[in-house]
C-alpha cells in the first residue's frame, strides 16, 4: 500500500485506529472479559505502535504488532489479580435482542464461561481463530509459537470446551 509509505507515526496511529481500534478492544475484551481494561490495553498498544512505526512502516506489520501487544497486554493484565475484582458489569443480555435473546444469551454465556477455564494459550488461540478468523500461520506469528503448537492448542482447547459443555460441572 503505497499511500502508507508517506505516513508518519501520527498518521499511522490515526489511520489504523480508525480501521482497527474497535476490533482490538474487542479482542482484549474477549480475553479479559473486562471492557475497561481491554480499552487500556488497546490504547497502550497504540502508544507503543506509535513509537515503533519508524521501523514497522507498514500497516499490516503494524496491525500484527498491535495484535501481539493486545494479547500480551491482556495476559499481563490478567496476571494482575485485581482483574477478577474489576469485572465490569455485563450488559443486560435480555436487552440485546427481542426474539431469541434470552436463550441465545444463556448459550453464549455457557460457552464463554467454559472458555474462561482453559489455559491462556489455548484460550488465545481459540479467540484469534474463531473471533478474528486468523490463519494458523498468523496465529503462530502473533503468539510467537510454532504452527504445530497452534494446532495442538486449538485441538486441545476445543476438546476441553466440548467436554465442559457436555458435562457442565
Amino acid at each position: 500500500m503505497d499511500a502508507a509509505r508517506g505516513w508518519d507515526a501520527d498518521d499511522a496511529v490515526t489511520q489504523i485506529y480508525a480501521a482497527h481500534y474497535r476490533s482490538l478492544v474487542r479482542l482484549g475484551a474477549l480475553l479479559l472479559r473486562d471492557t475497561a481494561l481491554a480499552e487500556e490495553v488497546a490504547q497502550d498498544a497504540f502508544v507503543s505502535m506509535h513509537g515503533a512505526w519508524r521501523r514497522l512502516r507498514d500497516p499490516d506489520k503494524a496491525l500484527a504488532y498491535l495484535r501481539r501487544s493486545v494479547v500480551n497486554g491482556a495476559r499481563s493484565a490478567q496476571r494482575h489479580a485485581v482483574v477478577a475484582a474489576k469485572h465490569a458489569p455485563r450488559p443486560d443480555p435480555s436487552a440485546a435482542s427481542a426474539e431469541q435473546g434470552a436463550l441465545l444469551a444463556l448459550e453464549h454465556a455457557e460457552v464463554l464461561t467454559a472458555l474462561r477455564t482453559l489455559p491462556d494459550r489455548q484460550r488465545e488461540v481459540l479467540v484469534l481463530r474463531y473471533y478474528l478468523d486468523l490463519s494458523e500461520v498468523t496465529i503462530a506469528d502473533t503468539l510467537g509459537i510454532s504452527r504445530g503448537a497452534v494446532k495442538s492448542h486449538a485441538s486441545r482447547g476445543l476438546a476441553a470446551l466440548r467436554t465442559a459443555l457436555e458435562d457442565p460441572a
Binding site: 474477549l30 481491554a38 448459550e107 464463554l112 472458555l115 479467540v127 473471533y131 470446551l161
Partner: peptide, 26 residues
C-alpha cells in the same frame, strides 16, 4: 458454538473513542 458466542460477546463491547487520549500520550 464458540464462534457464535465470541461474535455476540464482541458485539456488546462498544469502546469509547480514545484517539485523543492516545494522541495525548504520543
Amino acid at each position: 458454538r464458540l464462534r457464535a458466542a465470541l461474535t455476540a460477546e464482541a458485539a456488546m463491547v462498544q469502546p469509547d473513542d480514545s484517539l485523543s487520549s492516545i494522541r495525548d500520550r504520543t
